[in-house]
Amino acid sequence: MITFDRVNKVFGFEGREVHAVKDVSLTIHQGEIFGIVGFSGAGKSTLLRLVNQLERPTSGKVIVNGLEISSISQQELRKLRRRIGMIFQSFNLFNSRTVYGNVAYPLKLAKKSKKEVDDRVKELLRFVGLEDKAGQYPEQLSGGQKQRVGIARALATSPEILICDEATSALDPETTEEILHLLKKVNEEYNITILLITHEMNVVRRICDRMAVMEKGQVIEQGSVYEIFTNPKSKTAKNFVSSLLNDKLSPKLLERIRRDHSGRIYRVIFTRDNSSEPILSLVAQKYQIVFSILYGSIHEFQDRLFGNLIVEFRGSDVEVDRVVEELKTMVEVREVTEHES
């Protein structure tokens, strides 16, 4: 478990102060995958580095596994760091060591016997699927393979927490999927708590349980991934969500739809339990009107469906009004206007 309690971090550069992390309070529970999204410069990277004290907080408390870590000695800190694995955007592998040597390094730091090191390295290389690359050097590997080595190395000392600094941002979409799959496996098989930061909404959507949105050093929104994706409150969160869901109608498209379709146009949002029922059909049949779906998408978050559709209803005004009234009792319905957000 990681708790940030009113944490601030201020950097001083030649008299100029940069408030990188502003009054952040956040709790990451044991065993969950927690994602922090934000644009670059939002302070996510600094926040992440507070967890293993690569940065020290200016004020506030960072509590890791019940230990208030800004007050512990250097030696205790080094011990604690062995319980927190870390992976990086640029992998940061030791170029002078083989794949085997990279994974063995943290074990040697922990003064494990040669036999223990050998067993553990082999086990981890098998886990990440790189048994056959043990003798190779990082420069001979692809990006995805390098990150696998990074993950194996981070897991070497059996940490309880894994922190990921934009771990997939340097990878192509396909490799990103592979690495995310591996992280999910790490979380499930070893029950490791994962805290990750990213600017890719897709990463959060794919593997996170809960998330927070950061802007200008502050956490402006937090909650379950489903909550934030289906009902983002802040402008930044809305932007991030729509970047992935792509559910906004461009003015040009709306104009064309209006030209081609004479009926009244509504946005219908299905959440939670009703996504799988034929609500539209049932209501349309009941009132004898016709509808057509013009645009939209249905997504899955944390095994739940979320639908966001643009629907045209054709019929007399009175009938359509009745339909909308009835639909509103079950799902969210909004008339589409030119300036909808």
Binding site: R81, M86, F94
Partner: peptide, 9 residues
């Protein structure tokens, strides 16, 4: 790379 080593303790 140095940061990674520090993070490993």
């Amino acid at each position: 790379i140095i940061e990674a080593a520090q993070a490993m303790g």
